[in-house]
Design a binder for these strands. Structure first.
Length: 125
DNA sequence: CAAGTGATTGTTTCG
DNA sequence: CGAAACAATCACTTG
């Protein structure tokens, strides 16, 4: 039974796509929630355990159930990741609202082009 | 052949 | 405050 209170079911998406959907190439997509981040790895692991069942729906159910089984501490790393993604998303939104918010003047992106991964990407451990 | 659906929860966003 | 919508993903289903 689908306990969906909302209309997320199948028709909502189609209903939205009525007529013309102007897609803004600049418009960033929403950041994946902690659940999706968790699922990214979960799906991969699930494939190994269930190479016969690859359907997302199946993994989704298993993942959802497992997800609820996790505690905040376990979800912490996922939430932290999602939080960071959200922060970047907000920045992109700003860029979307202000596409011309660049530092005028010298833009000689000379040195910082090759490698600028500051902001410790791996700062969690 | 191509597009749509189904299923999961979380974040997003408007009224 | 709340509800509707959408985010990834991929076998399956239908046109």
């Amino acid at each position: 039974m689908k306990a969906k209170v909302s209309a997320r079911g199948g028709d909502s998406r189609l209903g939205v796509k009525n007529g013309k959907a102007e897609k803004d190439p600049n418009k960033p997509k929403r950041p994946p929630s902690a659940f999706f981040v968790f699922m990214e790895g979960f799906r991969k692991d699930y494939k190994e355990k269930h190479p016969n069942n690859k359907q997302v729906s199946v993994v989704g159910k298993a993942g959802g159930e497992k997800w609820k089984s996790l505690t905040d501490a376990e979800k912490a790393p996922f939430v932290a990741k999602a939080e960071k993604l959200k922060a970047e998303y907000t920045k992109k939104i700003e860029a979307y609202n202000n596409p011309q918010a660049e530092a005028s003047g010298d833009s000689e992106k000379s040195k910082s082009e090759v490698n600028d991964e500051d902001d410790g990407s791996e700062a969690d451990e």
